[in-house]
Design a protein around this nucleic acid. Structure first.
Lengths: 191, 191
DNA sequence: CAAATAAAATGACCGTGGTCAATTATGGAG
DNA sequence: CTCCATAATTGACCACGGTCATTTTATTTG
């Protein structure tokens, strides 16, 4: 009953990921083709799917890693004291998540895990974000008549909403953060 | 410069839609194959794409029609006086929108039009819903320190959020409306 | 070292959405 | 009615994600 992974496996996986990153840096996420990735990695197509359940799983990993790094920055920075501050602090994250329509679609698709055993990198980052937001929201500057949990969940809902509207013709003239601000003001600081 | 559509066109389109509805009633939306639809409609594959830009456009139409009918029911009913009432009234709509994971994905993908000239049936229904919600929200029972517009937009955001969570393993034990209620309470009736 | 066993990689193959040059049907002008 | 321009239809074809029986490579055992 041996189940040790061979060094070869790690090397192949790394080659696939490197190749994918290279393709993406040249043509963006949406234009990535599995065929192109395996060719650059110098492996057969089947090998790709031995390492990733499907193309989405690769995206989940690649995008998840980037979001995770971005969240580390957020967590390291001081907690925003005002709504305007919060919106500004969240901006880099939202920019990253909406860098491409395709990227945003992948994120939305993976933001909730369909099954417990399937929680992927992106779903993880949403938990992490939830944690960060709970800390931010749990300060004297914001309303204290609701649990940080539900407030943070609400902020996430508004973030997703604002990002989705960003791809909508009727409203994509307004910058992301500017669209988010009024919602958070009303949500976090009711009179 | 004649551009009159031939009766034949309407007939073919109707046959395609009928065939699609039939397939869906048997196997659901997600399992629909264009090949199956054109076979039942007795036309060639290319004909399908002469009538619909892509498979998504067919789904946009079919789902849009159903949502629209549901919204007519909502608009006809008396405006809900409480949050609990509102959540209960919205339930049929949310049930429809989440009848299948695939259906919800289609809806999310089409909820905002990418370009003004591309506003499809589903995007239309979101405008219609916005209108209905604005009327509901603009009543004495709810907060009056914010515009009906922004309040209604917030309700939509929370609805989408609640529906998305419905497909998430960690929280899909709670019924949809029950998950929505606390958010709307906090959003529409702050103390 | 050789044989046996398990892991990894291969690539021909498939399903399905979507395209387009060629063909056929339609309806109006003369 | 005939001819013709245009709309509608066709189906072979392509792109791309994904599968799986087979082969190759690594590791263990004797």
């Amino acid at each position: 009953m041996k189940e040790a992974i061979q060094p070869r496996t790690l090397k192949t996986r790394a080659r696939l990921i490197d190749a994918a990153r290279q393709v993406i840096s040249e043509t963006g996420y949406g234009a990535l083709r599995v065929e192109e990735v395996v060719q650059r990695a110098g492996v057969a197509k089947g090998t790709f799917f031995a390492h990733f359940r499907d193309k989405d799983a690769l995206m989940d990993h690649l995008i998840g890693v980037r979001i995770d790094a971005c969240l580390d920055d957020l967590a390291a920075a001081p907690a925003p004291a005002t709504v305007a501050d919060m919106v500004a602090t969240l901006d880099p994250l939202m920019q990253l998540m909406t860098c491409e329509r395709y990227v945003f679609d992948v994120i939305v698709r993976h933001s909730g895990a369909a099954a417990i055993e399937e929680i992927g990198p992106i779903a993880m980052t949403f938990h992490k974000l939830q944690h960060v937001l709970e800390n931010w929201v749990d300060s004297a500057s914001f309303r204290r008549d609701a649990s940080p949990q539900i407030l943070a969940e609400g902020v996430q809902a508004f973030m997703v909403n604002a990002m989705a509207l960003n791809f909508c013709a009727l409203s994509n003239t307004t910058p992301l953060s500017q669209r988010l601000e009024p919602y958070l003001s009303l949500w976090l600081k009711p009179d």
